[in-house]
Design a protein around this nucleic acid. Sequence first.
DNA 1: ATGGCGGGTCAACACGTGTTGGCCTACGCT
DNA 2: AGCGTAGGCCAACACGTGTTGACCCGCCAT
Lengths: 210, 210
Amino acid sequence: MRRTSQDTKCAILAAARERFATDGFERATIRAIAADAGIDPAMVMRYFGSKDKLFAAAAEFDLGLPGLSALPPETLGRVLAEHFTRRWEDDEAFMVLLRTSVTNEEAAERLRVISREKLCPIVTAVCPDAAQAQRRAGLLVSQVLGFALCRYILRIGPVVDMTRDEVVAWLAPALQRCLTGPLDGAWSPESVSPDSVAAPMCAPEAVAAG
Amino acid sequence: MRRTSQDTKCAILAAARERFATDGFERATIRAIAADAGIDPAMVMRYFGSKDKLFAAAAEFDLGLPGLSALPPETLGRVLAEHFTRRWEDDEAFMVLLRTSVTNEEAAERLRVISREKLCPIVTAVCPDAAQAQRRAGLLVSQVLGFALCRYILRIGPVVDMTRDEVVAWLAPALQRCLTGPLDGAWSPESVSPDSVAAPMCAPEAVAAG
DNA sequence: ATGGCGGGTCAACACGTGTTGGCCTACGCT
DNA sequence: AGCGTAGGCCAACACGTGTTGACCCGCCAT
C-alpha cells in the first residue's frame, strides 16, 4: 500500500483547514478539499462521515495557554499579546474558527466555550470576582478577535502593514486593560502604566450584576 | 394598482437586509427573502437584477458621522462610542456588512473604504500625520468591529449582558486611545485620562514608517 | 368596450452541492 | 498461485440554488 489511511486522513484535514480558513464553511466545498488533497470526494465521506464532522475535526483548536498564575499580573497583557500573535499565525484552526463562526453556530459556540473555559480561568487568577472575570474575558476576546479580523480577514491596509512587534506593542496594553483595568469609563493610569506594581484592580462598583 | 413598484422594492430591501444580517450572504436565499417580503422570487430579479446587485443595495450604509472637528479631541472617543453603539443597533446595514464581510470580498472592501474615507479624515483632524492617521483609523475599526462581533454575532454571554451605558463607558477610552493615545507599548496617563487637556499626542517616534 | 401596461405568479432550466453504493486495483498473506 | 482486504475511483442521486421566460390580472386612457 502506498499510503496508509492515516496519511490521507491527515492530507484531507490539512486541505480542509486551508479551505475552511480562506473560504469559510459554506464556500469551502468537499470537492475542492478533496482536489487539494489529491483524492476523490468520496474519500472525505469515507473518513469523516459528513461535511459537518469534517469541519468539527478541522476546527479542533487548543489555545495552548501554559500556566500563567506564576506571572505578575501586570505583565499578563504582554504575555497574552505575544502568545496570540504567534498562535494565530501558525495554527490555521484559529482562522478556521474566526472566519466560520460568523455564519456557523457550532463554530461560534466553540469560541464562546474558549472564552468561558480557557480565558476565564486566567482572568479569574487576577480578578477573583467571578461575574466580573467573565466580562473581562469576553472583552479580551473582543480585542483579540477584532484585531485578527481586521488584519487577516478584512485585510485593512494599515493594520496588515504593522509588524508583529508593533502588533504586540499595541495589543499588550489593550489586553492588560481587559485584565486589570477599570471596567467603567475612568481609565486610571496606575491600572495600566508599565511601572505600576499595584494589585489587580477589581473594584466591585465597576461592574453591574450581570 | 394595489402596490406601487417602489413599495415592493422597499419591502424586498427590508427583507433582504434582515436575512443578510442574520444569515450572511450565502445562507440568505432569494427565495427566503421573497417569502419574507410576501412576493415571488422572480420579482426580486425583476427589481434588482441579481443576488449580488440586491446585496449591493442592501449593504448601502452610511456611517452618518456629523462634523466633529469642532469638538475637543479628548472627548472624541466618547462621542464616537455613543455614535456607534446607537448606529449599529438601528441600521441593519451595519450588521449586514459585518456578517457578510468575512466571506464576501465586496463587503470587506466596503468596510475598508469606510475606514479609509470616513474614519481616516476624522482621525486626521486630531492627528496630522497621514500614515499614522490611517493606522489609527484601522485600529479604531478593529475596536468597533471586535466588540460588535462578540456582542451581536458571536453572542458571547457576558458581552451581550452589558447595558448600552456600560458599553459606551468601556468603548470610549478604547477608542480614545486609538485616536490620541500612543501607538507603542507605553500607555502614558495623560493621553487618555479624562482630566487631560493636553494636545493630541501624535509623537512621531510612536509609529514606524508603514 | 377595449387596448395597453405595470405589477405579479408559475413552472422550469442549468448548475453545483453533499452524499451514496458499486466497482476496481494492488498489496501482503497463506 | 490464489485470495482477502485496505485504499481508492466513478457515476449517480436528490436536493436547493440563482435565474429565466411565458403567462396572467386589473387598472388606466382612449
